[in-house]
Design a protein around this nucleic acid. Structure first.
Lengths: 271, 271
DNA sequence: CAGTGGTCTAGACCACGCT
DNA sequence: GCGTGGTCTAGACCACTGG
């Protein structure tokens, strides 16, 4: 029983693990080879990963064994596969900060001059170009949304479905749901950002006085992966914000799905 | 455009699917079969997934083709693989709510009677059994931590490394880092929860008056996956809380890594 | 023991995209 | 054209676990 010491360098610390030689699979040897090169900086961000046939030859294994190793690295979000002559490359993604403490709250920064809402301003302030498409619709509330909004299932609700992009790349899918009163407001008719003094909800007489945010993380569904151009091995954040009015009833529910490799959530709180 | 009819017999029902031959890979047919059964509830949480050989036979494909489909479902966190006779099962995880608005803040709920700190109380209130091990140590600050704490690189800092478990299952890895002053306090010597009136930091004369939380999501490193018993296809949340003191200097940085399938973050905010 | 998933091989054909 | 990854086959041996 011979022991092998393998080192693994994380962002914050160096770890060491001991593995029995007999238990180490051949695909793991290939995996460690590439992973080590990435961690040590031999392979930098955006660099091309050696090809499957080359690695199979070098390690003396079958091509499918190499594919097991590379597919694991893809799952972990370290590399991404191109098509044709491109080959695989080491992933390189710049996360965007999304400040959820200030987002759509007291100190919201809608800009009537540029027509940018709070989200767009936050993106523009980071030197990126925001863009969003909005599709309003009148729908029957499904169970989940009905529960959050505190209305009966299948009662009419207004939905504003957003697809947000940054620098012409898809960034977020964000759906807002409002109770029935919203059907007589621009929330149902206006297809652009609603930039109104104090925020659209306050302007329409239904200010949010309290919010509850729930954050979950999971792998994307095939549909989400397609619409957000999410590569294999990238999780998504699911952010649900429920806004409550002065009577402590929900005035809006917003469900946002954001790719994990392009998003950092921030909350700044006073104790 | 040739159509392939494939029939699949589960224990409970016989299904038939029609697929365009040109547009759909054969592993995707198998994938859609199982995914559909999960989505429609034919396969419930905890149920056993049909075996590889069985599926290969029913769909008339090679076993490795079936494995491609099942491995994709594993990546997406829908099923999990057992060993030996167990086979694969549909995943079944109950997320635990972690309220980060109240966590370690003004309304913290440490309990001197039970010796539970704020986190443990939050878990116990949800009917689960919390447990944590703490390892304090004096270390040299790495670049990341030094930057967050606002101290020189390689200057001495106190680290309290936590491994939290719920119901005897690993739950979080949480490391707190304190500036040099902490080396003369129980923060460096006490290996249990520090339950002190108003919270340890306030009691020791360095209250947090403001915090900044950063939340990121990624796939776990191999070490994290092992220590937290994270199955394939499960992302982690990385939560960084920087606490600032009355002089607006950081008094503590806490980095928490939590498995995505067992955690829901909650922030409740007043507008 | 029988059946499960884990690993592995040595081939094969294809679509794609660069040169 | 040629090398890339995507898909697929038909075998094989192994460790593990339940009945």
């Amino acid at each position: 029983m011979r022991a092998i010491f393998c080192t693994y360098r994380s962002d914050r610390e160096l770890e060491r693990c001991t593995v029995a030689a007999e238990t180490r699979a051949r695909w793991q040897v290939v995996y460690d080879d590439i992973r080590g090169q990435i961690d040590r900086g031999v392979l930098g961000k955006g660099d091309q990963v050696p090809g499957e046939v080359f690695l199979a030859d070098r390690h003396g294994v079958a091509r499918s064994t190499v594919r097991s190793a590379l597919s694991r690295l893809e799952q972990e979000g370290l590399i991404t596969a191109g098509k044709g002559r491109l080959g695989r490359t080491v992933r390189n993604d710049e996360p965007l900060v999304w400040n959820l403490h200030s987002f759509e709250r007291r100190d919201r920064r809608d800009d009537p001059n540029t027509g940018m809402d709070d989200w767009a301003r936050g993106v523009a302030d980071q030197g990126r170009i925001p863009h969003q498409e909005i599709k309003p619709s009148l729908e029957m509330a499904e169970a989940t949304v009905a529960g959050w909004l505190g209305v009966p299932v299948n009662s009419p609700v207004v939905r504003r479905s957003r697809r947000r992009a940054v620098d012409d790349r898809p960034w977020q899918l964000s759906d807002s749901w409002f109770p029935e009163w919203a059907k007589d407001t621009p929330l149902l008719t206006h297809v652009e950002d609603l930039v109104l003094p104090g925020g659209a909800l306050a302007y329409l007489g239904h200010p949010q006085v309290r919010t509850r945010d729930e954050i979950r993380v999971r792998m994307p569904s095939p549909g989400e992966a397609q619409r957000l151009e999410i590569p294999v091995g990238t999780p998504v954040m699911e952010h649900v914000r429920i806004g409550y009015g002065v009577d402590d009833m929900p005035v809006r529910v917003m469900i946002t799905v954001a790719p994990g490799d392009r998003t950092t959530l921030v909350y700044e709180l006073e104790v």
